[in-house]
Design a protein around this nucleic acid. Structure first.
Lengths: 131, 131
DNA sequence: ACACTTGTGTTAATTTAGTAATACAGGTCA
DNA sequence: TGACCTGTATTACTAAATTAACACAAGTGT
């Protein structure tokens, strides 16, 4: 768990933790079922108040990334089931609908939106570190 | 200049002003070179502090949407339309980045996202009323 | 039972974003 | 010139977000 925070980066500490753990999970460095550090442990490691880590974990649980077992710890959730995928696609579909509605409202063609998507994806692939 | 603000909409007043003026410019209701209301005038019309309007105008100038002539007033920038489009694309780009990041976290491939975009677009074309 | 660890909850301090009050500087134009 | 416009700058107030301090409840394992 190599997590590094920038205390005065403009983005809240708890958000930085959320983002980095999300990335660790999506990149496979944190496997499903794996236990992640106890709130106090990570807090001490990052030199941050435990409540801040607790909030990050809560957000992650809300997002379905992790599961908490009250007195046992926090674990990466098994988000691999096919049924879950349908749910995920539905969420993405809603966002896409909103995006398309906005684009239409702005007078931007859907073709351009598709181009932007591919373009942005390429950009994300090449540059893995920014800001 | 029909601008309407919702004081407690969650989004800041100055941001609402920025958004609506951006839209007015991009839709052509505010032509390039046209003068827009003096800060105090618009402030009184919207029942808002002049500083709030001033901030909105400042953001618009920073975005290249308008130009300010110190003692003469504020005018829609000459390249208002093209710049406005760039602005719109930037807004969409931000949303797309967020969408792609989310898709990655969910383990959904970008190809599938592109497919969903096209699919949803087709759905929007055929059925113009639902939700 | 008991020491220890886990996450939870309540409350307060702190920081930041947003808005407001007010005075200022520099032009226009009768 | 001088009243009257413009946008600008400084300062302070308010509300919300963020973080911190600290006590709590509930399992684990010896």
């Amino acid at each position: 768990m190599q997590i590094h925070i920038s205390p005065h980066d403009g983005v809240p500490i708890y958000q930085q933790i959320v983002n980095q753990i999300k990335y660790l999970v999506s990149s496979g460095r944190l496997a499903a079922g794996e236990e992640l550090p106890a709130i106090r442990v990570l807090a001490e490691k990052l030199i941050v108040n435990p409540n801040t880590v607790a909030r990050a974990y809560r957000e992650l649980e809300l997002a379905g990334i992790v599961e908490k077992r009250r007195t046992a710890g926090t674990y990466v959730s098994d988000q691999g089931s096919p049924l879950a995928r349908r749910e995920r696609v539905k969420i993405l579909t809603d966002r896409i609908d909103a995006l398309l509605a906005e684009a239409q409202h702005m007078g931007v063609a859907v073709d351009d939106v598709v181009k932007l998507v591919q373009q942005r994806h390429a950009a994300m692939q090449s540059t893995r570190n920014e800001k």
